[in-house]
């Protein structure tokens, strides 16, 4: 017997509806074929892109032509260290990709790739005023997340752990708190290493997960993309179902009456 689980559980960010709660990065795959197959296997409807100086030496592959209509683009401002650079990069991205969505990154520490909160807030305010749909990559800090939402961010994207570290969610208590209090969707961005951690993010209440390295640098990116899809779906279902309370001692599942023997 099969039971129909209600699957009508769309995510809405800034008026755009997503049926997949997984956003995927496009960098670091063994080759473009694997990247495209991973995008397909993940079921994602939005992929990230970087904006970089064009190579004047010769032809590069066009990411836009590769992705085509498979997914929306979420351009990032990766590597920017000032609000000013991030704003210009977002403006270039809007022109290059025809989207006013931006994954806003302003980095304050090159080794940890941790956000510079002051610059991030400033850039968020500027870009929101300029009509952008801003999704800031931020610290797992409820105060910062609230300030970003107040500044008009369409979602907040706290890190689980440093970018590319694969450490998982280092502070699950605070991620859960941010999710419980945030007026805008919370997207767990950065740190995920494997599918169970993507599931955990969703169980903690996140609206979606954004990841890249965990898929692109796995031994089998296409298989890992499918695993992440399943993990996100499982975590979302579990979150909606509601977990049982934790107890310190056992409680038998089987009836206590009618035991065989004495």
């Amino acid at each position: 017997m099969s039971m129909d689980i209600p699957t009508d559980d769309p995510l809405v960010i800034a008026g755009r509806t997503f049926s997949s709660r997984l956003f995927l990065g496009t960098a670091g795959y063994p080759n473009r074929r694997v990247m495209l197959d991973a995008v397909a296997a993940s079921g994602t409807e939005m992929v990230t892109a970087a904006i970089r100086r064009i190579s004047l030496a010769g032809e590069e592959e066009s990411l836009v032509d590769l992705i085509g209509e498979r997914a929306h683009f979420l351009p990032n401002t990766a590597g920017c260290q000032t609000a000013r650079d991030a704003v210009l990069t977002a403006e270039l991205a809007r022109e290059a990709l025809g989207t006013d969505w931006v994954k806003l990154e302003v980095i304050g520490d090159r080794e940890l790739l941790y956000p510079d909160v002051e610059e991030l807030l400033r850039a968020t305010e500027t870009l929101v005023a300029a009509g952008f749909t801003v999704l800031p990559y931020c610290n797992d800090d409820p105060v910062t997340c609230r300030k970003l939402a107040d500044a008009g961010a369409a979602a907040v994207m706290p890190l689980g752990a440093p970018i590319g570290s694969g450490l998982g969610i280092c502070n699950p208590v605070m991620i859960e708190t941010i999710c419980a209090r945030s007026p805008v969707p919370v997207v767990l961005d950065a740190g995920i290493g494997t599918a169970s951690e993507a599931a955990l993010a969703m169980e903690l209440g996140c609206a979606a997960v954004l990841l890249n390295t965990a898929v692109s640098k796995s031994n089998d990116p296409v298989r890992m993309a499918a695993a992440m899809r399943a993990g996100v779906e499982a975590g979302r279902l579990a979150s909606r179902a509601g977990r049982i309370p934790r107890k310190r001692y056992a409680e038998p599942s089987s009836p206590q009456l009618g035991l065989v023997g004495t």
Binding site: G25, T26, A27, G28, Y29, M35, T48, A49, A50, I51, R52, R53, I54, L56, E60, S62, L63, V64, F73, P75, N76, A78, L88, E91, L92, A93, R94, E95, A96, L97, I163, G164, N212, T213
Partner: peptide, 27 residues
């Protein structure tokens, strides 16, 4: 930013700094 529609009109003058970018794979 110079909008694409203005590329053919937008003058470039000595001393200008031009950035030409493209979307690349990213995370």
């Amino acid at each position: 930013v110079v909008p694409r529609t203005a590329w053919s009109q937008q003058a470039v003058a000595p001393g200008d700094a031009v950035e030409i970018v493209r979307a690349r794979p990213g995370g």
